[in-house]
Write a protein that binds this DNA or RNA. Structure first.
Lengths: 104, 104
DNA sequence: ATTGTAGTTCTAATATAATCGAACTATAGA
DNA sequence: TCTATAGTTCGATTATATTAGAACTACAAT
């Protein structure tokens, strides 16, 4: 069962997080994961885009250290690395998520 | 005395802020402005880059709503729109600035 | 073995961004 | 009026991102 490599939290740069969150699609993925409060498959998070596009965005979210993906059978379970990010960059993700849910 | 147009705070999008802060040069400018706690000219903020490059980054910071520039004589005085941004997106800029000053 | 499913990787097209020299604009001062 | 200064805009180059179809991989179930 091949697992996907993720950066460890020490390697996560703030600019990478900013970059990952600068895209509306990715911000929505992060927001959905946070609101769900549970692991979700890529399929569940369908945003009406081709699989390859979604996969691209997940790759960036993973490499930014925001999302962790665990392979289980044919499914890829995704979760936010919220606690880790909050420990390293306190308040950043929290404030961004609050700002996205308070969408005008 | 021509002044530069800025977006008003209602028009400022979170993704624009994220995008502007995703570039290390721009993040440094924002951080320097915050730490200075006063208005600074582009020249003062010299980061060893050509004027045209700096101007480009300032343009993006302005259009993201992060920086306000007031023309005074030949100088352009820049300041962070910290309070406005904090009011619209509480904690975001605060947390990002804290994270940049706590650079490991 | 074959089929289905979930998601990735490959590939190529298109779009957007960064960089910076050179020319330009606006103001100040001699 | 001439010169200096501060910063912008233009234009071209190069780099990086987005998008999405098609082929592929890994696993599960029949």
């Amino acid at each position: 069962m091949r697992q996907i490599k993720h950066p460890n939290i020490e390697q996560v740069e703030l600019t990478d997080i900013m970059y990952a969150l600068a895209d509306p699609t990715r911000l929505e993925i992060v927001s959905l994961l946070a609101n769900a409060g549970r692991r979700m498959t890529c399929g569940e998070l369908d945003l009406n885009r081709p699989k390859s596009s979604m996969s691209h965005h997940f790759k960036i979210l993973r490499s930014a250290g925001l999302v962790e993906t665990v392979v289980e059978g044919t499914e890829h379970m995704n979760s936010l690395r919220y606690e880790e990010i909050e420990r390293k960059y306190p308040g950043v993700l929290h404030a961004v998520l609050k700002a996205t849910s308070t969408k005008v």
